[in-house]
Design a protein around this nucleic acid. Structure first.
Length: 192
DNA sequence: AGGAAGATCTACT
DNA sequence: GTAGATCTTCCTA
């Protein structure tokens, strides 16, 4: 399956976010493959976005990465959960896309073990849940997801028809006017 | 040392 | 469905 190229991430974060829906996140760990279809995402910008990790006074590594090379991961801890983002922006811009939910495809049994539940609908239906299911931690921060051999990549999924809905971002204190959360209409794995 | 942070789980009404 | 406890880093004092 084709890995998405650097060029895919070298566009506005909101555009990249929307187009990531339906793509497949692939995690390789100890010759095991875990994967899931991306069904919910949010876009974040740089210094001007009050909800962004790159907003004034936030962790330096987040700022560096968000203004850095598109196609790398940005992973950080919030309330005891690791959150997975992909750096995405146009040249000289800043931004990232937060992966909020995926639909489990391969390695479901292993994910269940990681999450300590048998309910497939609560396995990866939230930003902190999916990182736990796929064993994604700080160690994978800055990984290049456009390289085939990386332990984390995003590939083109099956072409399927679906409608995209949008809303304001979840949990942020001060949101921008623009709606930056995107998700697949009617999908059971979108977070509540 | 203290607090804040893009969340989750549990235990209730 | 909502409320409260708790999760773990990194920043600022």
């Amino acid at each position: 399956m084709r890995v998405l190229s650097r060029g895919f991430y070298e566009r506005d974060a909101a555009v990249v976010a929307r187009e990531l829906l339906g793509k497949v996140l692939v995690r390789r760990i100890n010759s095991r493959v875990l994967s899931g279809r991306i069904v919910e995402v949010e876009a974040y910008y740089g210094r001007d976005d009050p909800a962004s990790r790159a907003y004034s006074g936030r962790p330096k590594f987040c700022v560096r990465l968000m203004y850095g090379r598109p196609g790398l991961t940005l992973i950080y801890m919030v309330h005891g959960n690791w959150l997975l983002n992909f750096v995405a922006h146009e040249e000289n811009g800043a931004g990232a896309v937060l992966v909020r939910a995926i639909e489990p495809l391969e390695g479901v049994e292993y994910m269940k073990r990681n999450r300590g539940t048998n309910d497939v609908f609560s396995l990866t239906s939230g930003p902190g849940k999916l990182t736990k299911a796929l064993v994604i931690t700080k160690e994978l921060n800055g990984v290049d997801i456009t390289r085939e051999e990386s332990s984390l990549t995003v590939v083109e999924g099956k072409k399927e028809k679906f409608r995209v809905l949008s809303s304001h971002r979840i949990g942020v204190k001060r949101d921008l006017e623009q709606e930056l959360r995107f998700f697949i209409e009617g999908n059971k794995f979108v977070s509540k």
